[in-house]
Computed example of a mutant assay.
Amino acid sequence: MPQLTADARHVVRFTLNGAPARCEVEPRTLLTDALRHHLGATGTHVGCEHGVCGACTVLIDAAPARACLTLAVQAEGCDIRTVEGLAPSPGTLGALQAAFRRHHALQCGFCTAGILMSMTALLAEQPAPDARTVTEVLAGHLCRCTGYAPIVAAVLDAAADMREAPHA
Rank of each mutant, 00 (worst) to 15 (best):
A131E: 14
V134R: 11
Q3G: 14
E136P: 03
G51T: 02
L16A: 05
T146M: 07
C23G: 07
T112E: 06
I115H: 02
A65T: 02
L86N: 06
V11Q: 13
A21W: 06
A62I: 02
G114D: 04
A72C: 15
A19Q: 13
P88I: 03
G18K: 04
C68L: 05
M119H: 07
G94H: 15
R102K: 15
T112L: 04
A6G: 13
A41L: 03
L59N: 04
T44H: 02
D79K: 09
V25Q: 01
V155Q: 02
A154L: 10
A154C: 06
E136S: 15
T15D: 09
L30P: 07
C68R: 09
R102M: 09
L31M: 05
P150K: 11
P64I: 05
L35M: 08
I60A: 14
A95W: 02
A105F: 08
A168W: 10
A113T: 09
G54V: 01
D157Y: 05
D61I: 01
A34S: 10
T92V: 15
E84K: 01
H141K: 00
V83N: 10
Q74C: 04
R28S: 14
V134Y: 13
L39A: 02
E84P: 03
L30D: 00
V46N: 04
L123A: 14
P127W: 08
C145A: 07
G47N: 10
V11G: 10
M162E: 15
H167T: 15
D79C: 13
A98C: 04
G40H: 03
Q107V: 01
T146G: 06
C78V: 05
L30F: 13
V25W: 04
I60L: 14
F100P: 14
E84V: 06
A131H: 12
T82N: 11
R13M: 05
G18P: 06
G54T: 00
A19K: 13
T42I: 13
L122W: 04
C48P: 14
L122I: 12
T44N: 02
G77M: 01
A67V: 07
A63S: 12
G43Y: 07
C56Q: 01
E136Y: 09
L69K: 06
P20I: 05
V73P: 02
E76C: 07
D33R: 12
G47D: 09
Y148M: 00
G43C: 12
F100M: 12
L30N: 04
C56A: 06
D161W: 13
